[in-house]
Amino acid sequence: MIAIAIIVGCILGALIGMNVPNISYTYSGYLAIAIIAALDSVFGGITSVLKGNFDLKVFISGFFGNAILSMLLTWLGVKLNVDIYLAAIVVFVGRMFTNLSIIRRYYIDKWSKKVIKEETKNEDEKKTMGEN
């Protein structure tokens, strides 16, 4: 159900993005940082789903709040002549890697448990056959 929603959203979003007029290069920096923040929220959401403590309110507020906050920080950085967006990128990308590693570990654990289970099953079968 959610997978279908995600796929439909992806396709529609791609189509809309292709047909929307270009934004000025001046603002593309802000947009890029917003995209990174949103992606971070998405990975964080996936992690929380796997951990079983997913909350839609937290997810939505993180998704939009982080994006807007990072854009504001970038704007402030431009005004102060400090590259604050670098800090935002470091934090978001670092968190993305952490979340990805959590997701990876989760699936690897799942897979290895499955393999061990099958092996023990096979051994059990062998034992039973040997007894026969």
Partner: peptide
């Protein structure tokens, strides 16, 4: 609600990403 919300968010995200791709491409 969750499904629609997540779908909408993904839609916004991909749209923005593609806009950015296009902008950078044509820059």
């Amino acid at each position: 609600t969750i499904t629609i919300t997540i779908g909408l968010m993904i839609l916004i995200l991909t749209a923005v990403i593609f806009v950015q791709f296009k902008t950078i491409n044509q820059t």
